[in-house]
Write a protein that binds this DNA or RNA. Structure first.
Length: 251
DNA sequence: AGCACA
């Protein structure tokens, strides 16, 4: 008779009971924003922190390069995790074939170790995190192997969320008048090569728009040409245009 | 200054 295994790997475990945590205060946010992480944090560490928590689905680790860059922090003394509700929910759902977590590395390549890839980090630096968990090891390896790595420095990925200099092929347009219409804006934008699509959000207040272009360079061209220009509908100054924080999702 | 889409 075959004995049942001592424990199930997390990816085979039965669904955890629903504690109703997914319904929160009502703003619909079910993503946590975690900051205060050391620069050398590994995606697997974050995954280990949350993987046993009821309702946890997936995590996404982004090296912004904004934080402790160039500064040696003693993890024993300096670091405090800060966790808050995210501004918006993560759009990355756990799709079959993709890894349990996602890595986005936007750090500039000045430090000695530049980025984590899916291949090379083995154990040694994550005892603290492992101590939090009751068990692991086998599952970790498989998790590591299926890690998805999104590298902003990879050559020729115009469709990346953002390039290293902050450019993006989607533009964010603000300072629009209350009567600005999608058609009006679309008419202007379509004069510029590579223009794909436009979305206007009112969000209760003044409208803002997202304009997607085929290539980053084409978005750059449009931003340069249209920055500060005034639409007919405007009851205020010209448009404020920036690169969007993330590329518009595929239609 | 204001950054969504699922």
């Amino acid at each position: 008779m075959a004995h049942p295994p001592p424990y199930e790997p997390y990816y085979l475990a039965p669904p955890l009971p629903d504690y109703g945590y997914s319904t929160n205060d009502g703003n619909g946010i079910n993503t946590l924003f975690v900051s205060g992480l050391p620069d050398d944090v590994k995606a697997r560490e974050i995954h280990n922190l949350f993987r046993r928590r009821p309702g946890f689905e997936s995590c996404q680790l982004k090296y912004t390069g904004r934080g402790n860059q160039g500064v040696k922090f003693d993890p024993e003394t300096g670091l405090t995790l800060h966790i808050e509700l995210a501004r918006s929910n993560s759009r990355r759902k756990h799709k079959p074939g993709s890894g349990p977590y996602v890595v986005i590395d936007l750090r500039t390549k000045s430090g000695a170790d530049a980025r984590e890839t899916s291949s090379d980090d083995d154990d040694g630096s994550d005892e603290n995190v492992d101590a939090v968990n009751q068990d692991d090891s086998a599952a970790d390896k498989s998790a590591e192997q299926t890690t998805t790595s999104i590298d902003a420095f990879a050559p020729d990925n115009d469709q990346a969320e953002k390039t290293s200099d902050g450019a993006c092929s989607t533009l964010f347009i603000a300072n629009l008048g209350p009567n600005c219409t999608e058609d009006e804006l679309k008419q202007v934008l379509s004069l510029y090569p590579g223009f794909n699509s436009l979305k206007i959000r009112a969000r209760g207040g003044m409208p803002v728009a997202f304009a997607d272009f085929e290539k980053v360079e084409q978005a750059t061209h449009a931003i340069n040409a249209l920055q500060g220009s005034t639409l007919a509908s405007s009851d205020r100054g010209g448009m404020h245009i920036e690169y969007a924080r993330s590329k518009m999702r595929k239609p």
